[in-house]
């Protein structure tokens, strides 16, 4: 995607989110903020996935595991009496890093569909581990007594503050991802996706680059988990179900891979559509499915591609 268009798109998307609470005020519908916070959290996760899927060619079918690790970090630390959001985020990253390092190192021995399936395998192991974890309610999950605190204050109990905190994290994640993909590291990563042999020939071993990207992606996804736990005030293994991993892939591919803002847009569209259709009809999956099929048949690059085509661009 043309960087100028991408910047404009990013500005518009983040800008619309920034004025959303205002819109909610005007419409007198504070619930809009609740929906939007959830969308933002998933957008963070989709962004994380696009970083390795779009740029590194690594299709992870297990990213929901990191959502879960982030969420359980909130549950575990809160129970231990640590309530600070910053520490919860660190906790999530501290759990996601070793998990990503170990599973990534093994998974990267494979490629293509095998990579998809081995990441799924590891996520399923994590899922079943938390299902068996009776101390945290096992499959039933745990209700959080309260949301994370900010500067020792229960600021996030206010939905609007939580919304802006999540938006800030999404923008931070976006800028970080932009920075990474624009750097030499990012170019090597893209190179290994395009042609690993050539990269090796010019002296880059793909493995450390891919693994690093995988770990960073896992950590960003864990941030989404922390925010999601705060938004629902409830944590359960259902968050790590393979369905979720699939939905994340759908969001990224729907939005168009490899341009970061597409993933954010994909999350927005997928969740809004789900929200909207499920209000219209009990049989909403039928229409959602139709939408997905039509998008794929009509466009080669998800919604981004569709927009480019309609707009007459490349």
């Amino acid at each position: 995607m043309n960087p100028r268009i991408r910047n404009i798109a990013a500005l518009v998307v983040f800008g619309s989110f920034a004025i959303l609470p205002l819109l909610a005020q005007v419409l007198g519908d504070s619930f809009l903020i609740v929906v939007a916070t959830r969308i933002l959290a998933f957008a963070i996760a989709a962004l994380a996935l696009d970083l390795i899927l779009g740029y590194g060619g690594m299709v992870s079918f297990g990213h929901a595991a990191y959502l879960g690790l982030g969420a359980y970090s909130v549950a575990m630390l809160s129970r231990a009496g640590i309530t600070d959001l910053g520490l919860h985020l660190l906790g999530g990253i501290a759990m996601a890093t070793p998990f990503a390092l170990i599973t990534g190192a093994i998974s990267l021995r494979t490629r293509g569909v095998y990579f998809i399936m081995i990441t799924l395998a590891f996520a399923q192991m994590a899922y079943f581990f938390f299902v068996s974890l009776s101390a945290y309610g096992g499959d039933d999950g745990v209700t959080l007594a309260a949301r994370s605190t900010l500067l020792g204050q229960p600021l996030l109990e206010n939905d609007t503050t939580l919304f802006y905190a999540t938006l800030a994290l999404l923008i931070a994640a976006y800028l970080l991802a932009l920075r990474i993909t624009g750097s030499r590291f990012g170019r090597v990563l893209t190179g290994t996706r395009e042609n690993p042999l050539r990269m090796q020939a010019i002296g880059f071993s793909p493995f450390p680059y891919q693994l690093t990207a995988y770990v960073i992606s896992g950590c960003i996804a864990s941030v989404a988990g922390v925010m999601l736990a705060n938004q629902t005030e409830f944590v359960s293994p259902a968050l790590m179900n393979w369905h979720r991993s699939g939905e994340l892939i759908v969001m990224v591919v729907l939005g168009g891979i490899g341009n970061l803002i597409g993933a954010v847009g994909g999350a927005v569209i997928a969740l809004l559509l789900e929200e909207w259709l499920s209000r219209m009809s009990e049989h909403w999956p039928l229409f959602f499915g139709l939408f997905l099929v039509i998008v794929v048949l009509a466009s080669r690059d998800g919604i981004s591609g569709l927009i480019r085509r309609i707009g007459g661009g490349k």
Binding site: L20, L27, D29, G265, I269, L272, W276
Partner: peptide, 20 residues
């Protein structure tokens, strides 16, 4: 890309039913 924003805005107004 503008279309995306339009859909977004349209969708958010649809979602914003009258608050009972």
């Amino acid at each position: 890309m503008t279309r995306k924003i339009l859909t977004l805005l349209a969708a958010s107004t649809i979602l914003a039913g009258p608050a009972a």
